[in-house]
């Protein structure tokens, strides 16, 4: 376990440090204008990009709940329209004080550990720069070792698929994007042997405007719903927040603050203020940094 954790951390740091001074030549960009919403661009053929994402999810309306999802992603453009990525995922949790409504006694203080990996494929059907609107299709199989909410050990598989639409205005300085995401998941909890399957549905929409050279500011919204056993909807939540994006020639970053504004069902006895705090958290922050080479 020590070496597994250690090597994962070394890989994260090395992936950031090594390309920085040595391998950066000419940049290409599938740069992310938003933290949660995907645009339709793909990397040009032969281009590479390495990302580090960190998402912080906080507060369940009771006790202490903090979770961090970290993703290290390597992306390669195989053609000007098709790219593929490999993600290595890490996850950590701090849970105490009855934060989980389904398991109030759960306490967990776990540092960053290897969570699993994803493989992503994205194909650009219509170019946002020369067609009426941009259209891309995206599919991402994933393997998961740590439950996102409880932090329990699981063996989980998911298949995330996205329909990505984008329309630009004012000489491409204003971008509007929409994603429809469907993700069936299957997982088995290692401790209890319990099996669970569910469908996650998301609608995300983002707007971003280049207000200065290199700088973009925007807003993104997210609707997230969960369908256990692929049947009736159990919960849903709406998120809305601002984001900022900076892009230089060979690297970029994006930061999004995404608080939950509303959700159902609410949990009795919690300071939920009309929010859904079992499958979702009160606040999310996401930071991405990427280097092109």
């Amino acid at each position: 376990m020590f070496w597994q954790v250690f090597l994962f951390r070394v890989a994260l740091v090395a992936a950031l440090v090594i390309p920085t001074p040595f391998f950066l030549t000419q940049a290409h960009a599938d740069e992310n204008l938003w933290g949660y919403v995907y645009g339709t661009d793909t990397l040009p053929a032969g281009a590479n990009e390495i990302y580090l994402w960190t998402t912080s999810r906080n507060q369940k309306g009771k006790g202490n709940y903090r979770a961090w999802d970290t993703q290290l992603e390597f992306e390669h453009g195989f053609t000007d329209r098709f790219q593929a990525s490999l993600y290595l995922n890490g996850r950590s949790h701090q849970i105490s004080g009855g934060a989980l409504a389904e398991d109030p006694d759960r306490r967990l203080h776990r540092g960053l550990e290897f969570d699993g990996f994803n493989v992503e494929f994205k194909y650009n059907v219509l170019s946002v720069y020369k067609d009426l609107f941009g259209l891309s299709l995206y599919i991402e199989p994933e393997y998961q070792r740590i439950d996102k909410i409880s932090g329990e050990r699981v063996n989980g598989f998911g298949l995330e698929s996205k329909l990505i639409l984008q329309k630009n205005f004012f000489d491409d300085q204003l971008a509007l994007a929409y994603n429809l995401t469907l993700e069936p998941e299957w997982k088995k909890f290692q401790a209890t042997g319990e099996r669970e399957r569910e469908l996650e549905l998301e609608h995300t929409v983002g707007v971003s405007y280049r207000f200065l050279p290199h700088w973009f500011a925007g807003v993104e919204g997210r609707y997230h719903a969960v369908y256990p056993e692929f049947k009736k909807r159990e919960s849903d939540a709406y998120f809305l927040g601002p984001n900022i994006h900076y892009a230089a020639e060979r690297w970029w970053f994006t930061f999004t603050f995404l608080p939950q504004v509303s959700g159902n069902p609410r949990i009795a006895g919690r300071n939920s203020n009309g929010r859904q705090l079992s499958e979702n958290e009160r606040y999310e922050y996401r930071f991405k940094i990427a280097f092109n080479f």
């Binding site: 951390r9 950031l16 960190t54 949790h93 922050y285």
Partner: peptide, 14 residues
């Protein structure tokens, strides 16, 4: 390092 696991600062440090 990771006792608090606040890796949000790692990208920022980059």
């Amino acid at each position: 390092i990771m006792r608090t696991a606040q890796w949000i600062w790692l990208p920022a440090a980059c």
